[in-house]
């Protein structure tokens, strides 16, 4: 069987279904992870030492635990802690997908907050001083001077996170989310032939990551050349 024959038949359909789930899961976790990352970063700018330390520890803890353990916790552990009502609500829905999305979002959020924080830290102190000297408040300085620069610096690492997240969604197969690798495994179970399904899945990941890599490169180039065009 050639790759073309393989993909044009029923197996291609299964892989396409898997790809759809992978893209959905990636999209949801990327968006949620970004929101979580921004929130964690903002909390870490708190003037209170204890708050900064607590959130810093939390972020370190999240990053230190393997993603698989996160997924297992949110699937097997967390729902049991819920009261009956919400638990029933959850089980009536696509609980596998939801739990995987929560686990990966939190995991990604911790990494994204580190990227954003190092972006913020890389802005020289002189920028803040120049802004304060003009009469801006601390908040205005953050809004007009620090944040736009930190965001520009953070775009390439964030695209890198998008890549990592897309690949990481494959771990959701461990709790039965029918994403791309899950479907490849299923096809292998049917055909006893591992090469074509896994090769196809591999090519798909490669394609997605290539697009993201190219986007990151293009951004870095234009950022250097024509940042002055907009403001």
């Amino acid at each position: 069987m050639t790759l073309i024959e393989f993909l044009s038949g029923r197996y291609g359909e299964l892989l396409l279904k898997g790809l759809t789930v992978t893209l959905q899961l990636s999209g949801v976790t990327l968006a949620a992870g970004f929101v979580i990352g921004v929130l964690l970063t903002l909390i870490r700018l708190s003037p209170f030492w204890i708050v900064r330390q607590a959130v810093g520890l939390l972020v370190d803890a999240i990053r230190s635990v393997p993603l698989l353990v996160h997924v297992i916790f949110w699937y097997f552990g967390a729902p049991e802690l819920l009261p009956d009502g919400p638990r029933m609500w959850l089980y009536a829905r696509d609980v596998n997908f939801i739990c995987a999305a929560i686990a990966i979002s939190i995991y990604a959020g911790a990494f994204i907050s580190e990227d954003l924080r190092s972006g913020l830290r890389s802005i020289p102190k002189g920028q803040t001083e120049a802004s304060l000297s003009l009469g801006f408040s601390g908040l205005e300085t953050f809004r007009y001077v620090i944040l736009p620069q930190a965001f520009r610096i953070s775009v390439p690492p964030l695209l890198g996170q998008a890549m990592t997240i897309t690949k990481n969604t494959s771990i959701a197969l461990m709790i039965g989310v029918p994403e791309l690798v899950y479907q490849a495994q299923r096809i292998q179970d049917i055909t006893y032939e591992p090469f074509l399904p896994y090769a196809s899945a591999t090519l798909v990941y490669l394609a997605i990551c290539t697009v993201l890599t190219l986007a990151s490169r293009a951004y870095s180039r234009t950022a250097v050349k024509s940042r002055g065009a907009q403001a």
């Binding site: 002189g126 120049a130 003009l134 620069q149 940042r227």
Partner: peptide, 19 residues
Amino acid sequence: RQGIGFVFQQFNLFPHLSV
């Protein structure tokens, strides 16, 4: 501070903005 202009040794122009 709005009434006290300050010019720094390292200029500290805002690099994300045009002149």
